[in-house]
Amino acid sequence: MKEEDLILIAKKLRGELPEAEENAFQQRLTTDTEFQEKYHFEKHLIENLNENDWDLTENFNQSAMEEYAQLYRSQKTQELKEILEQAKFRFKEKELPKRTLQWPWYAAAAVILLLITTIFLFDSPRSSNELYHAYLDKTEIPSLSHRGAAINGTLTQALQFYKEGAYDKALPLFKQLEGSGEINRATLLLYQGISEMELDRVNEAEETFDLLINSDLMDASKGYWFKALLYLRMDKPEKAKEILEKIKAGSLYNYQKAEQILNALK
């Protein structure tokens, strides 16, 4: 295969193929078998070897699949399933005494839950903006300092500004870091989007969350949650509802909270 074709395939798989070349690429896939085969193999390579991706292709040897399926259906596997279920409960029971030691926290959580429920029951429907403030937890984004990423000065400063609520100062730094490729991109996009949202730069925030949603990053689905919150902030409950329904249907990130908001918006 020609090197130019491999470059073309790599561009497509890295999302760098210009829109104008897309039709010709698709056409080539349907007419050129060698090109098609190479494309699928390169796709396998990326999806198997990118740590945040997974190859869901199902083109397996049928007899190997049937052999495994039979083993799954066998009596022995069904028995193991039962044993694993019992082991799970046994483990959870053992964990219980540790949990009861934390009862003051559970009691506090129960009181908060009761308060939230009471508010929603007796004071509903809540305004979009109130829901936004009730559900936006700016600390729920994972730390940026894990997975071996070196904490550089820019990152420390950006996080400090973010913590202080100085989003106008934090935002350019997050954007700068996003291009560096050193730090978890999904998390950076979340910090960036929340900063834009808090600065009422709603169009930019919408674009940032869309970028995350349409990416193949592992945490892409978190984009839906924050985009829903953005619509609540913009007082567009109908648009928020659409996304919240999607989160609920797909059991995506924070789907239980999405259900709570949907109930509150009824």
Binding site: E66, Y68, A69, Y72
Partner: peptide
Amino acid sequence: AVEQSLALLQQER
């Protein structure tokens, strides 16, 4: 059983 077998083969691949 088919779903689990597919996941297993994906892990092998």
